[in-house]
Simulated assay, not measured.
Amino acid sequence: MKTALDLVAAAKARVSEIPVSEAEAAIREADVLLDVREGDEFANGHLPGAIHASRGMLEFKLSSTPALTARDLKVVLYCKTSGRAALAAAAMQDMGYLNVKSIAGGFDAWVAAGKPVVKPEMPSFG
């Protein structure tokens, strides 16, 4: 019986994972940057320009959003540490997407490298 870690390892063996040091260039070249974490994770901070599409709803969002249906889109994905992004990239490959990359180490590696993060603004009641 396979575990979640087995599935992630199999996905990572067949998807393109890029190091954080190459992520900014890949994002600039990409058509879309997808954050596949949960909504609360996204709301607490995300990469600039990221679109939220939680891993659990990814295939449905891709299929129902006209701007995301072209199989030649250049896509960069990330999650917290890279497991969900690898699974998401593998699912996108299975759907026929041709140019999908995930960020090795995910959001945590991005933050550890001192890269910019967008955080929601709290309203001022002063």
Rank of each mutant, 00 (worst) to 15 (best):
G56L: 13
G56F: 10
M57L: 15
M57C: 01
M57E: 07
L58N: 04
L58D: 02
E59A: 05
E59M: 01
E59I: 05
E59L: 03
F60C: 09
F60H: 15
K61S: 10
K61A: 11
K61M: 14
S63H: 10
S64A: 15
S64M: 15
T65R: 07
T65V: 13
P66R: 09
A67M: 14
L68S: 13
L68P: 14
L68G: 14
T69F: 00
T69E: 13
T69P: 07
T69N: 10
T69K: 15
A70S: 14
R71F: 06
R71E: 15
R71T: 15
D72Y: 01
D72C: 08
D72P: 07
L73N: 12
L73R: 15
K74N: 13
K74L: 07
V75A: 10
V75T: 13
L77R: 06
Y78V: 03
Y78D: 07
Y78G: 07
C79L: 10
C79Y: 12
C79N: 14
C79G: 14
C79R: 14
K80N: 14
T81V: 14
T81K: 11
T81H: 06
S82H: 10
S82F: 03
S82L: 08
S82C: 12
S82G: 15
R84M: 01
R84F: 00
R84N: 05
A86N: 02
A86S: 06
A86E: 02
A88E: 00
A89V: 02
A89S: 03
A90C: 10
A91H: 11
M92S: 01
M92W: 00
M92R: 02
M92C: 00
Q93N: 11
Q93V: 08
D94L: 08
D94Q: 12
D94R: 09
D94M: 08
D94F: 07
D94W: 05
M95V: 03
G96Q: 09
G96H: 08
G96Y: 03
G96D: 07
G96E: 08
G96I: 09
Y97E: 10
Y97M: 09
Y97Q: 10
L98R: 14
L98H: 07
L98D: 02
L98G: 03
V100T: 04
V100G: 04
V100L: 05
V100S: 04
K101T: 06
S102G: 08
S102P: 00
S102D: 09
I103K: 09
I103D: 07
I103Y: 06
A104T: 14
A104V: 13
A104C: 09
G105F: 02
G105P: 05
F107G: 01
F107I: 01
D108M: 05
A109N: 04
A109C: 00
W110Y: 13
V111C: 02
V111Y: 00
A113H: 06
G114C: 00
G114I: 01
K115L: 11
P116W: 04
P116Q: 01
P116T: 05
P116S: 03
V117G: 00
V117W: 02
V117Y: 01
V117P: 05
V118D: 12
V118L: 09
V118T: 15
P120G: 11
P120N: 11
E121Q: 12
E121I: 14
